[in-house]
Simulated assay, not measured.
Amino acid sequence: MSTTSGGGAPARGSAVRAWGRALLGGAVMAGALGAGNALGEALARTVGAEGYLRQLVPAVLVSTLAVPLVLLWWAGRPARLRPLGLGPLSSAPRAFLRGVAVTGSCAVVVLGAGTALGWVRWSEPDPAALVTFLARNAVVAVLLEALPEETTLRGHAWASLRDRFGGVLSALGTTAVFLLVPAASTVVQAGVSRAVGGAAPPMGLAPGGQDPVAYLVLLGVFGLTLVAARTAPGPAPLWTAIGTHVAFLSVNRVLFEGAARGAGWSAEAGPAHAAVLDLGYLAVTATVFVGARVMSSRGRGRIQRRPTGVPEIPDIER
Rank of each mutant, 00 (worst) to 15 (best):
A228L: 10
A228W: 07
A228E: 10
A229T: 02
A229Q: 03
R230K: 03
R230L: 04
R230F: 03
T231Y: 06
T231F: 03
T231Q: 01
A232G: 09
A232C: 09
A232R: 04
P233H: 03
P233Q: 01
P233I: 11
G234P: 04
G234L: 02
P235K: 05
A236L: 09
A236F: 12
A236W: 04
P237I: 00
P237Y: 01
L238C: 06
L238V: 00
L238Q: 08
L238H: 07
L238G: 06
W239G: 10
W239L: 04
T240D: 03
T240V: 02
T240H: 05
I242L: 09
I242M: 08
I242S: 04
I242C: 08
G243V: 02
H245F: 04
H245P: 09
H245I: 01
A247N: 03
A247R: 12
F248L: 11
F248Q: 09
L249P: 02
L249F: 05
S250A: 13
S250V: 00
S250W: 09
V251I: 06
V251C: 07
N252D: 04
N252A: 08
N252G: 12
R253H: 13
R253G: 14
R253I: 04
R253Q: 15
V254D: 11
V254Q: 14
V254T: 10
L255T: 00
L255R: 14
L255F: 11
L255S: 05
E257H: 15
E257R: 14
E257T: 13
E257I: 00
G258Q: 07
G258A: 05
G258V: 00
A259T: 09
A260G: 15
A260I: 01
A260K: 09
R261F: 02
R261K: 10
G262T: 13
A263R: 06
A263V: 01
G264F: 03
G264E: 00
G264N: 10
W265S: 07
S266Q: 10
S266H: 11
S266Y: 05
E268A: 14
A269N: 10
A269Q: 09
A269S: 15
A269F: 01
G270E: 15
G270T: 12
G270S: 14
P271M: 12
P271H: 05
A272C: 05
A272Q: 06
A272P: 00
A272L: 04
H273T: 11
A274Y: 04
A274C: 06
A274R: 14
A275V: 11
L277D: 04
L277R: 01
D278Q: 15
D278Y: 12
L279K: 09
L279F: 07
G280S: 04
Y281T: 03
Y281P: 03
Y281A: 01
Y281F: 15
L282A: 10
L282N: 01
L282G: 01
A283R: 06
V284T: 11
V284F: 13
V284M: 14
T285M: 03
T285D: 04
T285I: 02
A286E: 13
T287K: 07
T287Y: 05
T287C: 13
T287G: 14
V288E: 10
F289W: 07
F289C: 00
F289M: 08
F289A: 02
V290E: 03
V290S: 04
G291R: 10
A292E: 07
A292I: 03
A292P: 11
A292C: 11
R293K: 15
R293C: 15
